[in-house]
Design a protein around this nucleic acid. Structure first.
Lengths: 191, 191
DNA sequence: ACCTGAACACCGTTCAAGT
DNA sequence: ACCTGAACACCGTTCAAGT
């Protein structure tokens, strides 16, 4: 395993570094995800990443963008089944459950995605694109119930607040995420 | 200024280190807040902090606890003026504004307080005590409108979500925090 | 163009030694 | 008991040098 050092000279190190970073991120946590440990995991020297990224942040921004692409994919999967109000509310609950489950199953990645450690992240095309996809998903679901920008922000804040409080261990860990999401969304009134 | 090196031998280094950490935290940000830079700011050697704290995290936990004491104080200040429903809702809006304003005016401290970087924080007496004070404030205000645990979690999630999204720059920065808080809390239905 | 090895300035932490 | 100075094992980043 350790000895099958692939030949990254044939163009693949950039992606391999991102993959290695994602692995270390979820398996060892943010503090252990150093640029040097990522390079080690990819089987290259400590300075090699600088051939593909301006600095550590630039690599982490790509990791965050990858996270948003996975996140958006998960949010786009469940399709609204019926057009009646009850079905629309049920769809919103489903999105909330997907949101919180993603956060709990990818804690460190979620923190990287939504934290503000990466000062240049808003200059990344892929981050903006994948992030917008996720936002559009929530926005569309909310606007079917209440076509107002503030309503989206309200729903998003509520679900995101629960997700962060759970990930950051400020709220009792509940295995039953759906029950938890349902219990707060009952207090969201989209008239 | 640099030369007036106080004599910390007479018991004050512990508090001086916490103060120095708070200053660096807000003025230079989390990445610059190293244990060595804190020690430098307090005018002692790099190893001196270990006479008062087991490690860097132990010091940061005290900083977070200090943050919660300030936070709780701010939340306790505004008193509910009238007992009628309208006054109670107004009180909740006020608490939301205080919450978000604290986050925006103490970004790095807020992130330290509510992040999960400090793995041993839940073992700190002062953190638990000051954190409980803040929670009780919100819980009391919500329970006057709707006496249900889930209602508190819903209101807290919504306000905390807005605060984190703003601090982490995932939502358009708005100078008018009150307007923003009001615009989302209109969708909180405590029946 | 892509990668290495050595170097620099940082870090957290430990430990013998000083007072 | 409290603090220092030196040391250790880490970092991120730069740069000359190799292919």
């Amino acid at each position: 395993m350790n000895t099958e050092k692939r030949n990254y000279h044939h163009g693949g190190l950039r992606e391999a570094l991102i993959e290695a970073a994602v692995l270390i991120l979820e398996e060892e946590g943010i503090p252990k995800m150093s640029l040097r440990s990522i390079a080690r995991a990819a089987g290259v020297s400590q300075a090699a990443p600088y051939s593909h990224f301006a600095n550590k942040d630039a690599l982490l921004i790509e990791v965050a963008a990858y996270g948003f692409s996975q996140f958006s994919y998960a949010l786009e999967k469940p399709k609204a089944m019926s057009g009646d109000p009850k079905g629309l509310i049920e769809h919103l609950v489903t999105l909330g459950v997907v949101y919180v489950n993603f956060a709990m199953e990818n804690k460190a990645l979620f923190q990287l995605m939504f934290g503000d450690a990466l000062s240049e992240i808003s200059k990344s095309e892929s981050y903006l694109k994948e992030g917008q996809r996720a936002y559009d998903c929530i926005d569309k679901a909310v606007r079917h119930l209440k076509d107002e920008g503030a309503a989206t922000v309200a729903a998003w804040s509520m679900v995101h607040g629960l997700a962060t409080l759970m990930v950051d261990q400020k709220i009792d860990f509940t295995n039953d995420v759906e029950k938890q999401v349902r219990s707060i969304l009952q207090f969201l009134n989209l008239k």
